[in-house]
Design a binder for these strands. Structure first.
Lengths: 170, 170
DNA sequence: CTTGGAATGTCAACAAGGCTGACTTAAAAT
DNA sequence: ATTTTAAGTCAGCCTTGTTGACATTCCAAG
């Protein structure tokens, strides 16, 4: 196993970074990193009768306010029954507000309430803190690479959602 | 929202890559990418009465053959009851072999059987294929950055596991 | 030798959060 | 007027996580 740092891309295309061993390490890094990624919000949520599913719903309602249930379904990639269970409790607890659509009255548009925004802040503060620490430690070039690889790893459908969210309205 | 590509690190330390918006995008990228990351093995496993938990057990037994149950517990970060349920079915189905320890007969050392190695191959081939495609698309510099950020994102305990696995024997 | 503790396994119960299928309601589209 | 669509709901099932209680087996220390 030779050192891999000194190949810097370009040039002769040695492709040492594509060995099975390198890929295995990437797979494991992804596994352990994702655990870290979700650890802080999970800790906050445990003991307040919410879980990771509630976090996800709150997150995406926050960054795409007024989104419909159907839209959220596509983003999250779960069934409506599954999402509805989560949404129902969040609406009942006054964290999310569901407004009947003006143009199409079948649709429900979802918004965070003041209370919902509070929890969202608490959760995303924790998650961003870890992310920020990791970004700072790794530096801007590493971050650019990180984002590039993640984008390439998504399913094309998911990438569409991701890009749509990134570009403002969903 | 200015363009962010043109800051290349170093120099004046603009730290634009640490804005809340950039962090939010990183969080979402992580979410969508992890879905892609697990999608292929999940597809293979569904309908053969195994799930992601079985995949994880098989993966780590494969790359650290002879590991003890306790060791696996620490790596996976689940309870022994949870792991045991998974392990029991894998042993019963002849994918994993459990040998009583020579030195300490309380310990059980875990090995993949030939059949187990077959399934492991099938699963990791699928996962590696996606990883390889992403790596190739992003290029070696991006991959180095990807790995750096992931490592910085792990809990310190998990990072120890990760490093131990990377350096050979667990 | 006996006793304490560690490693493992097992049983039971439970919860979160996925899933499917069936069905209702209301509104939109044809 | 009929069909399709969006949403919600009910019931039931599966996987995978959790606790708690308890048995077994074996090492090691008193």
């Amino acid at each position: 196993m030779a050192d891999l740092r000194n190949m810097g891309g370009h040039g002769g295309e040695a492709l040492l970074y594509l060995t099975d061993e390198q890929l295995r390490q990437g797979i494991e890094a992804m596994f352990f990193a994702y655990r870290g990624f979700t650890a802080d919000p999970d800790r906050i949520l445990q003991g307040m009768s919410y879980g990771r599913a509630h976090h996800r719903a709150i997150h995406f309602v926050n960054c795409a306010p007024g989104t419909t249930v159907n839209n959220l379904l596509n983003i999250l990639g779960v069934t409506k029954q599954s999402l509805n269970r989560v949404l129902r409790t969040l609406i009942a607890d006054g964290l999310i507000e569901s407004r009947v659509g003006r143009a199409d009255k079948r649709e429900r548009h979802l918004y965070l309430t003041e209370q919902g925004r509070e929890l969202e802040q608490k959760l995303s503060d924790a998650q961003r803190a870890r992310m920020r620490a990791a970004y700072r430690e790794a530096g801007p070039d590493a971050v650019a690479g990180f984002r590039q690889v993640l984008e390439a790893m998504m399913d094309s459908e998911m990438r569409r959602n991701y890009v749509a969210l990134r570009e403002g309205r969903a």
